[in-house]
Simulated scan of single mutants.
Amino acid sequence: MGYTRHPSCNPPGTDDPDKIWRYMDFTQLVSLLENDELYFPRADSLEDPFEGSLPVSHKNNVREEIFNEKSVNWAVQHLPKFRKICRKFTFLSCWHMNRGESAAMWDIYLKSNQGICIQSTIDDLIEGLNTEYNVYLSKVKYIDYTDAKIPGWTGLGDTISPFIYKRESFKHESEVRAIIHELPWHYSDEGGKITSEDIGDEDLEEGDYESGKTVDVDLDRLINSIRVSPQAQPWVAELTEDVCETYGLGADFVVDSPMEREPYH
């Protein structure tokens, strides 16, 4: 399996920057190199509480959006709980899409001056995945959750669209995300969509859920280069080079951040 196209997703195109960046702590890099695995945390474990939610306008118009009339009353009553459960079966690997490093992303996502950034490309992320899961890829779209609507959302049968939208206040992230979206319900024969008949009351009860999923990756393909935080001490870069050599990547994978350069004048 691995990368799979999904009609609701919006993968990067030829006009988008090809480079993508994953900002992480040094310990996360060591875990990646040690296990040859990319970690996909559960959607509801991320910092944004709006992950996978619907804008207010959908709540007000749910009767118009649920095409199966038998599901209308069920959706009005249970849709918030249904969306909450969907977040527990969705796992995300989030990347910053940009032609170069981002000072804002260094500041926001790194808790210390020992931060690391992996640079890859869309194609190398796709080709580097080695997994039995279907992994979808989409750029994130940014909207106002107070009055906008998710254009692709068509009721219970479209469970993934809410995960490719975020609030406008996150627009600086310029995010592209890899998505594992595996719901526990069996689809009905009505156009391949979930209806209220497919979901029992027990399916909406809280239970034990995976905190995340790990996906095997080809590190030589996935990682184009590794950058060390411009605020890091020299020993951090030296240690990163040693770690890369230990795990077979080679010290030349660690390159100087252009943000460390002195001005010309």
Rank of each mutant, 00 (worst) to 15 (best):
Asp158Thr: 04
Lys81Cys: 01
Pro49Gln: 09
Ser229His: 12
Gly192Glu: 11
Ser112Asp: 15
Asn73Asp: 15
His181Arg: 14
Ile199Asp: 01
Leu54Tyr: 04
Asp18Ala: 08
Arg22Gly: 02
Ile122Cys: 09
Phe50Gln: 05
Tyr133Asn: 14
Thr121Asp: 05
Pro184Ala: 08
Ile108Asn: 09
His172Thr: 10
Gly250Pro: 07
Lys193His: 11
Gln77Ala: 12
Met105Leu: 12
Asn73Thr: 14
Met105Phe: 02
Val140Tyr: 01
Met105Ala: 11
Ile194Asp: 01
Asn134Leu: 08
Leu92Phe: 06
Gly52Thr: 02
Leu219Ile: 13
Ser112Gln: 10
Cys244Gln: 05
Trp235Pro: 00
Val236Ala: 06
Asp242Met: 12
Leu156Glu: 03
Glu206Ser: 08
Gly207Arg: 15
Arg83His: 03
Thr195Gly: 05
Ile223Lys: 01
Asn60Lys: 15
Val140Cys: 07
Lys84Glu: 15
Leu156Cys: 05
Tyr209Glu: 11
Gly155Arg: 04
Thr195Phe: 01
Leu249Pro: 06
Gly212Met: 09
Asn60Phe: 14
Pro49Tyr: 09
Lys149Tyr: 09
Thr246Trp: 00
Leu38Val: 06
Asp158Ile: 01
Ile118Asp: 04
Val56Asn: 10
Glu190Val: 03
Arg99Tyr: 06
Thr146Lys: 12
Cys94Gln: 07
Gly157Asp: 05
Glu262Trp: 01
Asp48Trp: 07
Thr27Asn: 11
Glu182Asp: 15
His181Met: 11
Glu132Phe: 12
Val62Tyr: 14
Lys70Trp: 08
Tyr3Gln: 10
His172Val: 11
Arg227His: 15
Lys84Ser: 14
Asp124Gly: 00
Ile122Asn: 07
Glu127Met: 09
Ala148Glu: 12
Phe170Val: 09
Leu222Val: 13
Val30Pro: 00
Lys149Ala: 12
Ser93Phe: 06
Ser57Ala: 15
Lys81Val: 06
His96Met: 03
Glu238Tyr: 07
Leu92Ser: 04
Phe253Gly: 00
Thr154Gln: 13
Lys19Gly: 02
Thr27Asp: 08
Asp201Asn: 13
Gly115Ala: 08
Tyr39Leu: 12
Ser112Thr: 15
Thr159Ala: 10
Glu190Cys: 01
His172Lys: 14
Arg261Met: 07
Asp15Leu: 13
Lys139Gln: 11
Val135Asn: 09
Thr154Pro: 00
Pro55Met: 09
Val217Phe: 06
Leu249Trp: 07
Cys9Ala: 15
His96Lys: 05
Val217Pro: 04
Ile160Tyr: 01
Glu206Gly: 00
Asp48Thr: 12
Gly100Ser: 12
Asn134Trp: 09
Arg177Gln: 07
